[in-house]
């Protein structure tokens, strides 16, 4: 009989890498999503074009291709990244592109009368966004952001292919060392599901917080 405790510890090490990747990737994705999403609605043509090209490019190719590109092609341009940096960069930029469309959709969904009221109150562009539009748009974004975060979590499995020792990579190691396939893969499937569940629970909590005080305002 195989002593599993050491192998389970190995997988838990991988789980920690997966969690780190998910958190850092999500943070980058969030920043990029707002920058590109608001950029796509900018009044400057150049900013709009840049944001559109970024979004279409990253939504048009898969995370796997982007990751390989970041990891294998960028070094020729003189930018060498560690697997972790490459993973966070590729995941963040990929999911950020999807998030940008969510931001744009949510801001668009806020009615014209809100914008007009801001103009009537003589609020500047920044204040209009910051205090009127975004607080109402945020609750609309949250559920889709939650789904995007789960997609990002699932995307982290791909980084095992650029030799980053995340949970999937460690499961492969355990498989190679023990010859047993069911235990490592079943374990990580359950762990991934638990993490996805934790994300959706967290987003539901955030949603309740963000909608507090908005009762009766939204239809």
């Amino acid at each position: 009989m195989i002593d599993w405790s050491g192998y389970i510890a190995l997988i838990l090490d991988g789980a920690w890498v997966t969690i780190k990747l998910t958190i850092m990737g999500s943070a980058l994705a969030l920043v990029v999503a707002f920058a590109a999403g608001l950029g796509r609605m900018s009044r400057f043509f150049a900013v709009r074009t840049l944001a559109t090209v970024y979004i279409e490019f990253f939504r048009g190719t898969s995370i796997f291709v982007q990751l390989f590109w970041v990891y294998f092609v960028l070094p020729f341009a003189g930018i060498t990244l560690t697997p972790l940096q490459a993973g966070v960069l590729a995941l963040g930029l990929n999911v950020g592109a999807y998030g940008a469309e969510v931001v744009r959709g949510a801001v668009r969904a806020i009615g014209r009368e809100q914008h007009e009221a801001c103009v009537a109150l003589n609020l500047g562009r920044y204040h209009r966004m910051r205090y009127i539009i975004l607080p109402q748009a945020l609750p609309l974004m949250l559920p889709t952001f939650g789904n995007n975060a789960i997609e990002l979590l699932k995307g982290t499995a791909v980084v095992s292919l650029i030799s980053l020792s995340d949970m999937t990579f460690q499961a492969q190691v355990v498989r190679a060392q023990t010859g047993n396939t069911l235990v490592p893969f079943a374990t990580i499937l359950v762990l991934y599901f638990a993490m996805a569940w934790a994300i959706s629970a967290g987003v539901r909590w955030l949603e309740r917080r963000a909608t507090r005080g908005l009762d009766g305002v939204r239809v």
Binding site: L153, A157, S160, T168, T181, A186, L189, F193, A196
Partner: peptide
């Protein structure tokens, strides 16, 4: 829900190796 919450890559490994 379980299938949707776990990575495709791991599911592929599962089908291919287990």
């Amino acid at each position: 829900d379980f299938i949707r919450g776990t990575p495709l890559l791991v599911q592929l490994y599962f089908i291919f190796y287990v």
